[in-house]
Simulated assay, not measured.
Amino acid sequence: MFGYVVINEPELKIKDYKKYKGVYCGLCQTLKRKYGPAGQICLNNDMTFMALLHMSLYEGELPCKERDYRCKLHPMKKQHIYENPHLDYAADMTLILSYYLAQDHWKDDRKISALAQMRTIRGKVRKLSHIYPRQWRAVKNYVYRLEAAERSGEKDLDKLAGLTGTMLGELFNWKDDAWAEMLKNVGFYLGKFIYLMDAYEDLEKDIQKGHFNPLIPYKQRENFEDQVFAMLDLMMADCARHFEQLPLDMDVEILRNILYAGVWYKYMKVRKGKNKTEEVKDESL
């Protein structure tokens, strides 16, 4: 489900790209330090964005280290990475999310790799549930409520997307402090976008496999593509509106690059692929 909150690399300044890579690689190394290789495979861009957001919002409040290291995937050149409590928190939330996403993959597709991942990190997630009871309950309840809604054939797109939004909002709300409501709102609308984007990308596959997808009833509408874009655009507009209310200075251009351009990269790629498929179908008639 996750992986849509990415940068628009061509539009980033070189220094901003290096900073983003430093945080992304920093999250990777934090996952390795805390959870080993099993943690590293859970790495995703969405939690990198959350870490960047927290680093900007809480700038100067917590210690932040920087260092160079040599990555096995890129051994010829040392990588510059960041290490701080923001990345520790992002790594912990990444593991909790990954456990329940793996559980979902196991239930839906009986993927052995998903079952293996669950068994590998289950004990670590159990410990995290005691450290972050609010966030853990948010993810666990989200999975339960989403499964129940899908079993019942829920057709309300806003309600379904809101489940993902509520869950992600709780994760973005790290400290439950003065910024809690704003952070929850950013996470809420971003989560709604992610849910709908995931449904849009998986639509054809879900139809073929007979899986639940809330967009199936809308697919035959003449203005289907325009409707999907309008909903996604509205969600990101609301997300950006709450994001701009936060008192951010550090790395704000990177964060804006992601929210105003990066999140649309996958959408454009998926829509382009759908258009090509339709062209092939038309030519075969």
Rank of each mutant, 00 (worst) to 15 (best):
G191T: 06
I121L: 07
V125L: 09
E201W: 02
E181Y: 04
Q135K: 13
W179F: 07
Q135R: 09
E154S: 04
R145V: 06
K155I: 03
V186M: 06
R137C: 03
A116V: 14
Y142P: 01
E181A: 11
W136F: 15
E154P: 08
L196P: 06
E154D: 04
S113G: 08
Y142M: 00
V143D: 07
Y195E: 00
H130N: 08
D156E: 13
E150Q: 11
K155S: 07
L168K: 03
W136M: 09
R134W: 08
K184H: 14
L190M: 15
K159H: 14
E147K: 03
S129L: 13
L157I: 13
A148R: 15
D177K: 12
A180E: 12
K192A: 00
W174L: 08
A138N: 01
N173W: 10
A161F: 08
A180L: 00
R145W: 11
N141C: 00
S152C: 05
W136D: 10
Q135W: 00
R119K: 14
A149K: 06
L157N: 06
F188K: 06
D198Y: 02
T164R: 02
A178L: 12
S152N: 12
I194K: 07
V186H: 13
T120E: 15
K155L: 09
R126S: 01
L183I: 06
E150F: 07
F172Y: 11
R126D: 01
G187D: 11
Y195L: 04
G191P: 01
Y189V: 01
D158K: 02
L157Y: 04
Q135Y: 03
R122Q: 15
A178I: 10
I131A: 12
L196F: 00
G153S: 01
Y132W: 09
N141L: 05
F188I: 06
D198S: 03
F193G: 02
A161N: 09
Y189T: 07
K184C: 15
W179P: 01
M182F: 12
W136E: 08
T120G: 02
K192P: 10
L128S: 11
K155Q: 12
I131K: 12
L196Y: 02
G187I: 03
Y189F: 09
V139Y: 03
P133M: 02
Y144K: 14
W136H: 14
M167F: 09
A161D: 10
M167W: 13
Y200H: 11
K140N: 09
S129V: 10
L115Y: 14
G153I: 11
L168G: 03
R151A: 05
G123L: 13
L183N: 09
D177R: 05
R134E: 15
K159V: 04
P133H: 04
E181N: 04
K127M: 10
N173E: 05
T166S: 03
A199L: 00
K159P: 00
H130L: 14
L171E: 08
Y200P: 03
R145L: 11
D177H: 08
L171V: 14
Y189Q: 10
E154Q: 09
G191D: 03
L196N: 14
E147S: 07
T120S: 13
R122W: 00
L146I: 07
A114H: 11
G169F: 05
L163S: 05
L171A: 10
A178D: 08
T120F: 10
G123M: 02
L115D: 15
K124S: 13
V139I: 14
D158A: 07
Q117E: 13
A161V: 05
F172M: 02
N173F: 07
K140C: 11
L190W: 06
